[in-house]
């Protein structure tokens, strides 16, 4: 069990070295130096980039500054996905540091949610946790918590306090001994090949016959192309937190250990690089 606790820590403290550059079309008073930062995989872009914003605002006039947004190689980055998901989905097989372009004008209304303050991130985060618990426990655990407990989850994430977060999140990961796991596994499967942003359905950790559902079984059901047929070459990688877990890994274990703080297991399907 001690090993499993280490997994939670490793996931929490995962970092991505990132280089932020100001978009060339922004009006500046002098040249803007790039800004380097280690981004926490489990957090959100708009939550951890105050310093980036401050850095670039120094060279800009207030009237040229609109709502901040981020872009990677022409793709606006959705701040409401965890940072690690954005990286795995768009930049997994590229060299580090991850190079993100910062914009202060022409906010892409059609692609991105607005994020005027941290309270918007908080609302989004809590709504994901609630949704996950609706799947796991019919909302019973999250509804039994008090407002201050909800706040503890959020503050844990916002202030990067692993112990504070997990002291409460532990309860969201419990299930009765009569059950073999959660009611349904909260998961989302992302891919960039179609307009549909992700796949999310009901999926149980164990089949009605008592067979343990694995990552491979989930993918076969939800995204068959991700699993190569026998003798075929692998076309896709299924990535969680920057690694490819074995397809034999039980989903229940993955859900308890590799979920993001929002309590969802985010799985990115990315094409195998051709070289």
């Amino acid at each position: 069990m001690a090993d499993d606790k280490d997994v939670l820590r490793d996931v929490w403290f995962g970092r991505i070295p990132t280089c932020f550059t100001l978009n060339q079309d922004e009006v500046t008073e002098r040249e803007a130096e790039p800004y380097y930062l280690l981004l926490p995989r489990v957090s959100y872009l708009t939550l951890v980039t105050d310093k980036v914003k401050k850095h670039f605002l120094k060279v800009m006039k207030a009237e040229d500054v609109g709502e901040i947004w981020f872009e990677y190689e022409g793709t606006p980055l959705k701040w409401h996905y965890p940072i690690g998901v954005l990286f795995d989905l768009h930049a997994f097989n590229t060299v580090l540091p991850w190079s993100i372009t910062v914009h202060f004008k022409n906010f892409p209304d059609q692609d991105l949610l607005h994020c005027s303050s941290n309270s918007v991130v908080e609302a989004h985060f809590m709504s994901s946790i609630k949704e996950a618990d609706a799947l796991k426990h019919k909302s019973q655990v999250i509804n039994d918590m008090q407002k201050k407990d909800h706040k503890q989850l959020w503050m844990g994430l916002q202030n990067d306090k692993f112990d504070q977060f997990w002291a409460m999140n532990r309860k969201l990961m419990e299930y009765s001994t009569e059950e073999e796991g959660f009611r349904y596994i909260p998961f989302r499967i992302y891919q960039t090949m179609s307009d549909r942003p992700f796949i999310q359905k009901q999926f149980r950790p164990v089949s009605p016959e008592g067979k343990v559902h694995t990552l491979g079984i989930l993918l076969k059901e939800m995204y068959p192309a991700a699993i190569p047929n026998e003798g075929e070459q692998k076309r896709y990688q299924a990535v969680i937190h920057g690694i490819e877990p074995l397809l034999e890994t039980p989903l229940q274990w993955l859900s308890e250990h590799l979920s993001h703080p929002d309590n969802f297991l985010h799985i990115c399907i990315i094409p195998v690089p051709t070289d």
């Binding site: 059609q110 692609d111 309270s119 709504s127």
Partner: peptide, 23 residues
């Protein structure tokens, strides 16, 4: 307010929409 109506990604279209929270 943010728990009643919030801006969310449309789960089928991937575009920003407002959503009446279903919880």
């Amino acid at each position: 307010p943010l728990n009643t109506i919030s801006q969310q990604e449309h789960p089928l279209l991937g575009q920003p929409f407002f959503m009446l929270h279903p919880c």
